[in-house]
Simulated assay, not measured.
Amino acid sequence: MNFFQMKNSNIHYFMEVEVPKPAPPVVGKVTHHSIELYWNNQHQLQGYGATDQRLCFSIEEEDIKTHTYGNIYIGYAKQHVVKGLDASTPYRFRLKVISHTGYYAYSPVVTVSTTREPMSGKHLHHAVIKNDVEGACRVLQSGDVKVDILDKLGFPPLMIAAQKGYHRMVAFLIKFGADVNQKNGSGKDSLMLACFAGHLDVVKCLRRFGATWEARDNGGSSALHWATDGEHLNVIEWMINDDCKVDVTDRHSLWTPLMQVAALSGNVEIASLLIKAGANVNIQDKMGKTPLMVAVINSYDNLVQLLLKNGADPYVTNEYGTSILEMAKSFSTENVISLLEEFERQ
């Protein structure tokens, strides 16, 4: 063996035998997505001269699939926070200490598990969307989440459940303290959304727990306005029997539900139900328009006929003095014009 072979052999022997093995990194704060490791005490680095700033450190993490280690940190600091980890998952780390001469040694492996991810609003909203009452119960019982927490669109869980027609979920959330009259950014509450979607069982449940017919959204519309927009006859009938006012007006245009039917759908069945319940066929909005005028403008000939049969005044003029027949000749079909002309001849 020549000199260089002897020298290399001695270095190899020294690196494997003489370099002291450091203690494992100490585990600090552990969360569901991070683990703090540090190695800044004399005991861990005994034999290296812990005050020697020329020591270099490397933290290596085991790949659970290949059982090999890869560097996740290398430098001169004496602590490192491993981030971006999965919740409730074990991880294995070892410390590598490198002297200024290039000698190094590995510590024993330390195994650390991240904590369970804390419950949050997204867990509750996810359970509600899936109609998972048991899952929602687990989230709320954790104590980490409020029952009225909003999602990114400003909807509380109760509003989502009401909109989707999840009656059992609605009842559960209310019993857990959900506010039945809470509104979203547009001023709508759960009752309005349930009425628009036609979920009668949810409407009944919300009313039973204190939801009010008097609420208005930012546009001034009530739950009955939304029910007529959704064209749900059974819901509207139940609302009327539950003492919901049929001539309730919005705050902006002073439109009643009957006026809204004349403007949007022309639904004769809904209009008949409202009229039978006492809706005023000659009520005027902020601009002086009546339901008949609006129905004429939209060419809803069946609705025009219904309104005329139930006392709608065809001689009312708008704010500009224009008669309904004149409006019909500008906007409507021949059917509507004929209905009005025939009515005038009677």
Rank of each mutant, 00 (worst) to 15 (best):
P118K: 08
S107P: 11
R116G: 00
H43P: 00
T66Y: 15
E117V: 10
V109H: 09
L45N: 03
Q44A: 09
L45A: 00
H125A: 07
D63Q: 10
F57W: 05
I64Y: 13
E117A: 15
Y103A: 14
P90D: 04
V81D: 00
L95N: 05
G75Q: 11
V97C: 12
Q46K: 15
S99M: 03
N40W: 01
H100K: 12
Y73K: 04
V97E: 06
K83L: 04
H123C: 02
A77C: 05
V81G: 01
P90H: 10
D86T: 10
G84R: 03
V112G: 13
S88H: 12
T68N: 14
Q42D: 11
G102Q: 08
L124T: 04
I59T: 08
A77T: 12
S120Q: 11
K78C: 08
T66E: 14
K65R: 13
G84L: 09
Q53A: 07
Q46L: 12
E117R: 15
A105G: 05
M119P: 00
S58A: 14
V97A: 05
V97S: 07
T111H: 01
I64M: 10
P118N: 05
V97F: 04
S58G: 05
T89A: 02
Y48G: 06
Q53V: 11
G121N: 02
D63M: 08
Q53G: 03
L95S: 10
K83F: 01
R92Y: 11
K122F: 07
G47Q: 06
H125Q: 02
P90E: 06
P90V: 06
E60H: 06
S88C: 07
Y76F: 14
G102N: 09
T51I: 01
A87G: 03
R54W: 07
V112H: 07
R54D: 10
D86W: 03
Q46P: 00
S88K: 13
G49W: 03
Y76L: 10
T51Q: 10
